[in-house]
């Protein structure tokens, strides 16, 4: 009974954060800020949903834990690869007045060499 309540709370929080992540992807102004909103919110959202289902069905908990650990490791890696790739093909990050981009120098150097 207690497990069911915890499970429902976790699943609700997870789905809520999945929705916020998607909203962030829709609203943010450029690739990098979209990635920020997307990666963080969907990672916690997926973790919450999957572990919540593990609490609702206690005999599934081990496999759900494996999926959760895999998502927690793989999501930052894929977003890192995407961020590097987008910067390399010349997409400039959205900067406000006086914003800095120290990676641009390194990137230029790589292209000329």
């Amino acid at each position: 009974m207690v497990l069911t309540v915890i499970g429902y709370i976790l699943v609700t929080i997870g789905v809520l954060f999945l929705f916020l992540g998607a909203l962030g992807i829709f609203r943010m102004p450029d690739v990098f800020t979209r990635m920020q909103a997307g990666t963080k919110a969907t990672t916690l959202g997926a973790l919450g949903t999957i572990i919540g289902v593990g609490f609702l069905q206690p005999e599934w908990i081990w496999k759900t834990l494996i999926i959760a650990v895999f998502i927690a490791i793989s999501n930052p890696i894929s977003s890192h690869a995407l961020a590097r790739g987008s910067h390399k093909i010349g997409i400039k990050p959205y900067l406000k007045e006086g914003g800095v981009d120290t990676y641009a120098e390194v990137d230029e150097g790589v292209k000329e060499a």
């Binding site: 954060f17 916020l20 992540g21 909203l23 962030g24 609203r27 943010m28 102004p29 450029d30 990098f32 800020t33 920020q36 909103a37 963080k40 919110a41 916690l44 990050p93 959205y94 900067l95 406000k96 914003g99 800095v100 981009d101 120290t102 990676y103 641009a104």
Partner: peptide
């Protein structure tokens, strides 16, 4: 981090000041 992102996304003014640092 998630509450931070949620706050930034819901806020209608979108309070961000992005940049890349070393």
């Amino acid at each position: 981090a998630n509450f931070d992102v949620a706050w930034r996304v819901i806020n209608p003014k979108l309070p961000i000041n992005p940049g890349i640092v070393t």
